[in-house]
Structure formats: structure tokens, C-alpha cells
Design a protein around this nucleic acid. Structure first.
Lengths: 172, 172
DNA sequence: TGTTAATATTTAACATGTTATATAAATCGC
DNA sequence: GCGATTTATATAACATGTTAAATATTAACA
């Protein structure tokens, strides 16, 4: 019950590291999968909390980001919160309807929006933040502060290391 | 160009580790964000490749998983490939239409589907696999095999460590 | 000045994630 | 055997991810 089943688990080519010629790496050793599963495990701790207040993870990220500066342009906000512009556009519409953020227009550039969090939005954050911090503390305690720091470092370095040239295949 | 902008970056509370009373952690030190950005950086290397063959990341995961056993039930497949059942249901419909997988029904349990990859599906994998492996090699070379191994270890341990009790808030 | 290229944001279309619910078939209890 | 509960899968509804295209505005430039 809960096991991947015990039948017919054939053809896991060559274990963890080795690869015979022409075979793919073992399915388990997929970096995107490992990152995904870790993220899922972490989010499982936070999602219920946000859901109690009818916020999605992404909406929460946007609100959090908006507390780090007085105003944001949409593009900056998208970069900082790692949300694509199309998604952000929809999210801002939702958050604006709920009165958690507000939009203005920049004097010098009429296409740029000036997005900021409202007092109501700050209230929402103040309401959730302590619980969020508690979950963080639980995770840190369970995993170990030192290993967590190491993990942060590796993740940042990985993103830096790959993020620069953005795919490596600009040709064609 | 590409920088987060230099204006009004106020109120990043207390740097990386410290937190003043009542304040939240710095937005940058969000574990879900760090995992997300690392994953995005990695996927940016693979997505174009899959896209050339009209496959999404998830469809690819399902196909890959199907090569590790002769048959799968939908539930197992969902677990192994870290895709939710609703998503998997849609994905299987798509892949079946394209002839990359096929579905049967189990003798002993008429609700369970027996899902397997078709020869055509294997061809698709054989076509993409070498390119995928090359990308992997690039990533390994850029990041370092040793650090990559350490990262794998930490990610697995994090998922194990949190995955067990599945959220920690079973009450109510 | 007027035309073109670049930039900021939005919308469209489709695939997936998340939660809740529905459907069907097996299992348990009697 | 029959009904209630569980299990396996599918659907529904809404939010987001991804890619492409549209819109509006600014900048560049002849």
C-alpha cells in the first residue's frame, strides 16, 4: 500500500550512475524530477495554509514580492517572483479585484503599470506570515539548518551556472 | 537591461539569515522559490528539445516512465512520474491519440487500466534520448559531477524527510 | 515629421496543477 | 446474494505554465 508495486519492474538499465551505450539514464536520476519532488514535498507544508485564506502559491509570491519595494513595474515583478508575464497579468487582475493590490500608471511611460500592495494586502500578509514562519522552522528543524544552507547554496549556483546562456542552443 | 532595476528597492528586512521580530524572512530566501528557479534553469535546457517533437515535459516523463516496466496501472504511473491523476488522465488521452501509448484492461480488476508504450513511442524515445543525454552531460560538466551528486542527495533527503507525514497538519 | 523598430503589457489557445466530485468496480459485512 | 464502504479512474472547474500573437507606447532614424 503506497509502494510502487512489486510486479514487472523490468529494465532499469544500469543502476544509478552507469549507462550502457545507447541506453538512457535511470529514470530516477532525473534532475528535473528530483527538483520537482523536493518542491512538492515543501509546498505540501505551505499550501494548506495559503488555501485557508484563498490564496494560491503564486498569488502569495506576488504579494510577498510587493512588500520588498514601494512600487513595481509588471516586468520586474514577474522576474522577481518567477512568474511569467501572461500568468502575472491574470494574477494581478484577480488580486486587484480582491483589493489586495492596486495599479497606477507611470508618468514617463504610459504603458508601464505601477503596482503596489494595499493596506488590505499587508493585513493579509501579517495574518499569514507567522504561520508561514512556523512551517519554515519545522522544515529547518526536520532537515537541519546546515544542510538547508548547503542546499540553498547549490540551488543558487545551479541556477546561476545554467541561467546565463539561457539554453545553450541559440543557433538555428 | 535585465537587471531588477535600481529604484526603490526598500525594506529587505535583515539580509539573508537574520529576522527581526515579527518580520518575515527575506523574500529571496524562499525554499520553494529556490527550487523553482533551479528547476526552471534546468528545464530551459530540455524544453526546446522536447518541443521540437511536440512533446511537453510531462508527456516525456510519462513515456520515460513507461520504459521501466512492461505495464503500468494509472495510479502507479502517476506516482512514478510525479503527475497528478487528473493530469495524467488527460495526458494519456493525448498520447493514446498519437499512438505513443496503448491501454488495456486488467483481467482481475476491470477498473484498472494496463498502460504500455507502443513501438512508436519507443521510437520517439530513441529519437530524443541521445540529445537529452547530451544536455545532461553539458549540465554535469558546467556544474560539476560531484556537486551534482551532492545536490541529488540533499534533494532526495529533503523529500524523504518531509514526505513521510505529508504536511504535518492532519488535525481537523 | 512620419515611418519603422523596440519595449511593456495583455490576450488567446492549449496543456497542466489543484481541489472536489462523479463513476465504476471491487471488497467487506451481514 | 445485497448494501455500504473502499479503491481506481475519470470529469469538472478554476488557476497557472507555455508559446505565440495582439495592442499600445516609446525610441530610433531617415
Amino acid at each position: 500500500m503506497g509502494r510502487p508495486s512489486r510486479k514487472a519492474v523490468a529494465a532499469e538499465p544500469t543502476g544509478v550512475t552507469g549507462q550502457s551505450a545507447g541506453e538512457m539514464r535511470a529514470f530516477r536520476r532525473s534532475l528535473p524530477m528530483a527538483l520537482l519532488k523536493a518542491r512538492e514535498a515543501v509546498m505540501a507544508r505551505f499550501r494548506p495554509l495559503l488555501h485557508e485564506h484563498d490564496l494560491t502559491e503564486q498569488q502569495w509570491r506576488v504579494l510577498r514580492a510587493l512588500t520588498t519595494a514601494d512600487e513595481f513595474r509588471a516586468g520586474e515583478l514577474a522576474r522577481v517572483s518567477s512568474i511569467s508575464m501572461p500568468s502575472l497579468s491574470r494574477i494581478l487582475r484577480t488580486l486587484e479585484k480582491r483589493g489586495l493590490i492596486q495599479r497606477g500608471i507611470e508618468d514617463k511611460d504610459l504603458r508601464a503599470a505601477q503596482i503596489s500592495i494595499t493596506p488590505s494586502g499587508r493585513d493579509m500578509i501579517a495574518l499569514i506570515a507567522p504561520h508561514s514562519e512556523r512551517r519554515y522552522a519545522e522544515i529547518t528543524a526536520a532537515f537541519g539548518a546546515d544542510r538547508l544552507a548547503t542546499l540553498y547554496g547549490l540551488l543558487d549556483e545551479l541556477a546561476d551556472c545554467l541561467g546565463g546562456s539561457d539554453g545553450g542552443d541559440e543557433e538555428e
